[in-house]
Design a protein around this nucleic acid. Structure first.
Lengths: 207, 207
DNA sequence: GAATTCTATGAATGATCGTTCATAGAATTT
DNA sequence: AAATTCTATGAACGATCATTCATAGAATTC
């Protein structure tokens, strides 16, 4: 378990601190993440944060990068698994987001905390933004394909924005009370929206 | 300007501190709200927070209550002004939210900060929740009226959830970069959604 | 295996946090 | 007008914050 070589140790301890940071943020909010809490959750010594990340601030940026990377990898894999068809891929993306909330709760709450912090701390904004545009860009191109295929009289950009807003609203709602949230309702809301704007592609799925 | 009687002073200084708190949260985030910042923004003495609110914690609850009340009064007035017709009232509600962002920015950002804080601090949850359910309840009943009137084959509850998710997504997106946001786009996204699920009531408005 | 280099530790530091309280002054009451 | 009551002030306090650094020990190199 515990690493033997120095190279292993570096990777091991950095990961341990990042995980402890996510835990602390999910449990006590962004401002509740103190070095003392990191010590408590990681079980490591007090000086480890500064040894491995120099400043607490730099650790936080690594945490944010970790969250962004993990989420992107996750939804991209979901799209890759789906059938080679825009409707199937779009649905896989949404299904991934809706179902994700049932297992990966700490990461989502931590992510929302960073997103909120990015409003007043510009240094977090770039990472939040790139993640957002990557996701939105994918949804846009899927919508464009659907519009072309179905001959719908709507702008793909507007449709894509609507879908991402829906998902973000779902996140917020879920985060306030994870126990109340049910994937079934989230799925139903998204499906209603999709079946309404892309009837030829999603109406059958709605019943 | 400055109050002369003690009764006036109480109201005046409490309002001044609440305003300074909103300013501080909007500029530096929830954790950036320190007593020193309150002193800086309000121009009052250091002891005023404890004199008028006992603890900083209680001031924060008053701020949240103030934000919730102001917002509720605002959207209820918008509905009251609209014509006596569910479609008109629903649209007035959405228009209010979309346009609100062009003037009332500090309050919205502060509200989002409280909402985020409520995830890990249960004492804020009640106030966030009641505001949410009051808003959602109104949207639900408006949707129910539209469903009945138009004979749509959708559940009013699901439609209402979709609308609130859309608006919450809009808030989040706008908060990250207020300058980039344009009411026109927000309106377009909402209208696309409404015209798609309630075609008989909103299709004409969409062109 | 000895010498060297880097890692891990936690007590100490200065800064900042929210809160207290003695004091001065203003509003109110007698 | 004098006496009283409450308000406003800001220096001082203990707690906690992130960070530093001398020391011990382990991994690596010679």
């Amino acid at each position: 378990m515990r690493p033997r070589t120095r190279g292993e140790a570096r990777v091991y301890f950095r990961a341990k601190l990042i995980d402890a940071a996510i835990e602390a943020i999910a449990r006590h909010g962004f401002s509740g993440l103190s070095v003392s809490r990191l010590v408590e959750y990681s079980g490591l010594a007090r000086g480890m944060v500064n040894l491995h990340f120099d400043r607490k601030d730099k650790l936080l940026h690594e945490v944010l990068r970790h969250l962004a990377d993990a989420y992107r990898a996750s939804w991209q894999a979901a799209i890759a698994r789906a059938a080679d068809d825009p409707a199937a891929k779009l649905w896989a993306l949404i299904e991934h987001d809706v179902a994700r909330k049932t297992h990966d709760d700490r990461a989502l709450i931590a992510w929302l905390a960073f997103r909120q912090e990015a409003i007043t701390n510009p240094s977090y904004r770039a990472l939040c933004d790139t993640r957002e545009t990557a996701f939105l860009g994918t949804v846009k191109s899927l919508c464009a394909a659907l519009v072309k295929d179905g001959g719908y009289a709507i702008k793909p950009d507007v449709a894509a924005l609507g879908i991402t807003f829906l998902l973000e609203g779902l996140w917020l709602d879920w985060s306030l009370d994870p126990k109340r949230y049910r994937p079934k309702i989230g799925r139903e809301v998204c499906l209603l929206h999709l079946a309404a704007i892309f009837p030829k592609h999603f109406e059958t799925r709605a019943h």
